[in-house]
Amino acid sequence: MPMRPHAIALSVLESQYRVDQFNAAYGDCLDRGAYDSWIAMFTEDCLYKVVPRENHDAGLPLCTMALEGQGMLKDRVYGITNTLFHAPYYQRHVIGGARILSDNGITIEATANYSVFRTKPGSVSEVYNVGRYLDRFVYGDQGLLLQERLCVFDSELILNSLIYPI
C-alpha cells in the first residue's frame, strides 16, 4: 500500500505512545508516594539528576540531587521515609507530551516538559518545580526503563526544600 506523503511512520507513533505512557505512570508513582515502584522504573546503572537550569546551561556539574545507580535511589528513598525531617506535602505532576529525539530499537532519547505542584496539609496548591526531562530509555523485558533522567528545572528558587524526587 503506498504511504500518504506526510504520514508518520508507525514506529515513531509507537515510541511516542510508550514514552507518554511511561511518563504518566512515573508521575503517578511519585504523586502516590510509591517510591519502590519509582526505583523499579530505572535500570540498575541509572543516572537521576535534578539540576538547576542555571547550572545546566552554564555547563556546571552541580545538581540539587544527583543519584547514580539504583543503590543511591534506594538511599534517597530511605532518606525520604526515615531520616529527612520535613513537613509532608502532596506532589502533583503534570507531564506534557514527549518529544522523541531518537529511537534505534535499543534506546529511546526523548524530552518532555513537566510541572509539579505542591500542596501542604491545610494549605493552597503552589507551583513548585517547573522544567523538562531529558531522558534516555532502554527497552527492557517488561517495557521501558530509564537509564538516565535529567530534570532540568527553570524555577530559580526552590520553595525551601526539595524532599521527594521530581
Binding site: V50, L84, I158, N160, S161, L162, I163
Partner: peptide, 15 residues
C-alpha cells in the same frame, strides 16, 4: 547530595 535544598542533612535545616 548531603547539602543544599535537597540535602540529606541540609533540607531539614530549612524546614
Amino acid at each position: 547530595n548531603l547539602f543544599g535544598p535537597a540535602g540529606f542533612v541540609s533540607a531539614d535545616d530549612g524546614e
